[in-house]
Design a protein around this nucleic acid. Structure first.
Lengths: 156, 156
DNA sequence: GCTGAAATAGTAACTTC
DNA sequence: GAAGTTACTATTTCAGC
């Protein structure tokens, strides 16, 4: 039984399989099999092992929010009152669909969140109507991402 | 021909399909077909349409970096000298595999990046050996993510 | 959106080292 | 017994309707 923190051994073949699927999760496994030089069933067995080891945590369809009209991405640093517990604030943030990430951070803020909005007006609404009213939120600092220039996963 | 910024029409069935696949990109399409009540081929047609519209930009295998021993995630705000052009700095940041995201932001910094390291010592190395030496980088502010409490995509 | 044929994936039993 | 192949069934993909 492997816990989340055990390091596991993966060989070159595992790495090849992962690299292909990290870029294109629905790539035909037989195609990978032909390129690597082993059978499709063998790849499937390795994938099952990588899944049960916890290294593979899933596969997600990536969608382009711009096509839906969501063009404004921003990071917001949130200062919480000392009395306010982080988990309670996170529970409230979870209810806001525009909040995509939430980190409990060292440094100036208690919380750093990433939000995705249609435009600046929508962002202002989320700040004023959804975030500021949360109990314990004293102040926020907003950084709009004018352009996301790198977006990738860990390199295998 | 649709450009990246056109909004497209998607109906309830499209939304259902997207919701299933955004959570589990490798979920059998026939399984979704049975739940929604249309044929697998119909779903496939809709997926092709969604792909060519640009809404679906791909499918990625999600891996758990903790299993590989990467436990320290941090955001780093970077101040650039006025003379330094952003694209040149980004080109250098791209060469650092630990840099997962890079945003050109409004506010205090020129650039906000997200890095993933094995531990605090590794993070220190990346800062001192890889980031600080980049020409034009004058100062950095680091925020370690003690815990990522929300991580999701846009809600459809 | 459906149908049906060809390609591909997933599973299990068998083989080899 | 760990890793792979072969053989078999289910699913996906693609063309024609």
């Amino acid at each position: 039984m492997k816990s989340d923190n055990d390091h596991i051994k993966i060989d070159g073949i595992d790495k090849d399989i992962l690299r292909y699927l990290m870029a294109e999760a629905r790539k035909p496994i037989l195609e990978i099999a032909r390129k690597i030089g082993i059978s499709g069933a063998a790849i499937h067995q390795r994938l099952r092992k990588l899944e049960s080891s916890g290294l593979i945590s899933g596969a997600k369809l990536v969608i382009n929010p711009k096509v839906l009209g969501y063009t404004t991405m921003a990071y917001i640093g949130i200062y919480l009152d000392k009395a306010m517990s982080n988990p309670v604030a996170v529970k409230e943030l979870e209810k806001i669909p525009e909040v995509l990430e939430c980190h409990y951070t060292t440094g100036n803020w208690s919380i750093l969140i990433k939000v995705l909005c249609r435009d600046n007006e929508h962002l202002m609404q989320v700040l004023n109507r959804d975030i500021q009213p949360i109990e314990g939120v004293s102040r926020t600092e907003t950084f709009i991402s004018l352009d996301q220039q790198i977006d990738r996963q860990i390199t295998i």
